[in-house]
Design a protein around this nucleic acid. Sequence first.
DNA 1: TGCTGTGAACGACTTCACAGCC
DNA 2: GGCTGTGAAGTCGTTCACAGCA
Lengths: 217, 217
Amino acid sequence: MDSRKIPKPTIKRLAIFHRCLENLVISGVSSISSKDFADRLGIKASQVRKDLSYFGEFGKRGVGYNTELLLDSISEILGIRKRWNTCIVGMGNLGMALANYPGLSKSGFVAKALFDNNPNKIGMPMPNNLMIESTAKLKEIVKSRNVEIGVITVPASAAQSTADLLTEAGIKGIVNFAPIRLSLPQEIINEEIDISASFRSLAFSMTYGSSKKGRKH
Amino acid sequence: MDSRKIPKPTIKRLAIFHRCLENLVISGVSSISSKDFADRLGIKASQVRKDLSYFGEFGKRGVGYNTELLLDSISEILGIRKRWNTCIVGMGNLGMALANYPGLSKSGFVAKALFDNNPNKIGMPMPNNLMIESTAKLKEIVKSRNVEIGVITVPASAAQSTADLLTEAGIKGIVNFAPIRLSLPQEIINEEIDISASFRSLAFSMTYGSSKKGRKH
DNA sequence: TGCTGTGAACGACTTCACAGCC
DNA sequence: GGCTGTGAAGTCGTTCACAGCA
């Protein structure tokens, strides 16, 4: 383990490895080579081996990887056993969708609070014994429920102030869906998901032709 | 314009430049230097200049960039004036959220059809004179309404078959929200948005410490 | 022999540093 | 002097190629 010099894309891929391995284990595949595994994901075998090599040696030379063992190791690496308390700020369509998305809680991200400042929404009951609460109470609630991750799904104009509020509340990580780059203290980890930007990027590639190589598989 | 060798990250940033410029123009800022602009976005000035240099010369030495002019140029580059017809397949929470998200149509991505195969949803009226239609009619509808982009918001298990269906229907680009890597003919442009993977990536950074430099500003 | 693990080569993207114009 | 535009240098991530073990 080469501690602390792990490429970000490697982490993203590990999350994908994890999902693929789950399927393999369920399908009863007990062993797989880096080549076969890579083909399934549309990447190179060397990439698979290099990604794993940052964290240790998980395979058997001449054989391949034991799927269950590897799944376990990757769960460990990604800290998937840990549960993370999250809160969602901005219960518009996207916030609602996230609050109802089972994939997140399945991955260990548990919503502990949902905030909005629209009085008509406050008090609205939501799944998992939650209800929408006032943003005014955010600081207090985040602290008392040990929320570590804040999800920002407010309009762009309110994103920075929401981020500031979350920071003051002592949050450690932010997932920001608002199409704006946030100014944050450097100790706060920040992940941006800009849906419009992805669409635009797609449109550009469609117009000018992709520079990427085609996926075979 | 160095045609066809433009880094993908450059395109993503251009989309961000665009949004930032809109704000600047609205605020009445008529000129800005690459340094000031970069600071606003938390990137390096040289990055701004390099990104723009792929497409031409938009600034005045010793002065900076005219915001309105630059906004115009970037709109041109990104093909933002063009309208793209999209369809959304899978009207769960996320599909609904996207169908209701004004940011997309504002960026020129207009939903022309919404599909689901749940009989209870079919026929349900939606904004913009749309209603949810049966996936069985996808091919026919996509062709007749000139849909170019397919958005996949079905569960992972149905994502590949949906992609195949869209491909057969003659779609040119896909935005895939399902947590699975799609196998596609190489002429289809593909953009993946994996929300769970982003959360996991965040969690990893929170656990092991970010390798990124802190954002100032 | 087959396949992993990994240093070294390569390629892609970013940053530097400065020439060139305002 | 100030700031852009850009080749050159540097950094980061991917791919190669092969040594080493089952």
